[in-house]
């Protein structure tokens, strides 16, 4: 039982992380008693569970049940919508998951509820390897989004953008007086009273994403935001 790599090192596929008997977590594969990363990422080890994990530095959004995402309506069907969720599969929003009560395709026009090009915040309610992700917009806090702007960041940087106990995101919100929604698929919605504030929030979020794996980030972002507030 040996681990060859230090925690937080950047690893690549084809590199032996450890030998022996561990648990292979996300981004790790076991081949003949040896553990390899499957992706380029930073290595982490969870001592309690003896679990090896590699956190990706790049990569697309992969849907997960319970994720809150921001999606773009791409197609309107008779009783459903196809939603771009930035993943390998299109999200399906059935009318029964979008409208309270009964939806009658003969009388009701799906286009009146969500039209092509509109933006929805949704939750993924079911997804497995045989079905495309099913969305809902019926719960509280979900539905159509209007105004503001949306920027796309690497979904792997979301934990950093949120920060410990939500510290990072609330700091950005406070200093820029913006309303910010973070979709777990890496789409971030920002809305503020002034373009300057929106722009500032955007700059800060972009910087978080760019320097997601660099320490001292919170301080730098704080400095950036305070400079903005003082002007």
């Amino acid at each position: 039982m040996t681990i060859n790599i230090e925690v937080k090192d950047i690893v690549t596929p084809g590199q032996v992380i450890a030998e022996g008997d561990y648990k292979a977590g996300d981004g790790v594969i076991k081949i003949d008693k040896r553990y390899y990363p499957t992706i380029v990422g930073t290595f982490s080890y969870f001592e309690k569970r003896e679990e090896l994990r590699v956190r990706p530095l790049e990569g697309r959004y992969y849907p997960k049940v319970g994720d809150f995402i921001i999606g773009y309506v791409e197609d309107v069907k008779l009783t459903s919508w196809m939603v771009n969720i930035r993943g390998p599969y299109a999200g399906v929003l059935l009318a029964s998951n979008a409208v309270r009560g009964r939806f009658d395709p003969i009388k009701d026009d799906a286009r009146r509820i969500y039209d092509t090009g509109e933006v929805v915040r949704a939750e993924i309610v079911s997804f497995d390897r045989t079905r495309d992700p099913q969305l809902t917009t019926k719960d509280h806090g979900l539905g159509k989004l209007n105004g503001g702007r949306i920027i796309e960041i690497n979904p792997n940087h979301i934990p950093r953008l949120v920060g410990r106990k939500g510290s990072m995101i609330s700091m950005i919100k406070k200093h820029t007086e913006s309303r910010i929604l973070v979709g777990q698929n890496g789409r971030v919605w920002i809305k503020s009273d002034t373009l300057e504030n929106e722009e500032m929030a955007q700059t800060a979020i972009r910087q978080v994403s760019r320097e997601a794996h660099v320490s001292g980030l919170t301080d730098r972002i704080k400095l950036l935001l305070e400079e903005h507030s003082n002007n």
């Binding site: 981004g27 594969i29 992706i39 990706p56 790049e58």
Partner: peptide, 9 residues
Amino acid sequence: ADAGIPMRD
């Protein structure tokens, strides 16, 4: 690898 596609090697 740059795209983050999981590979065995």
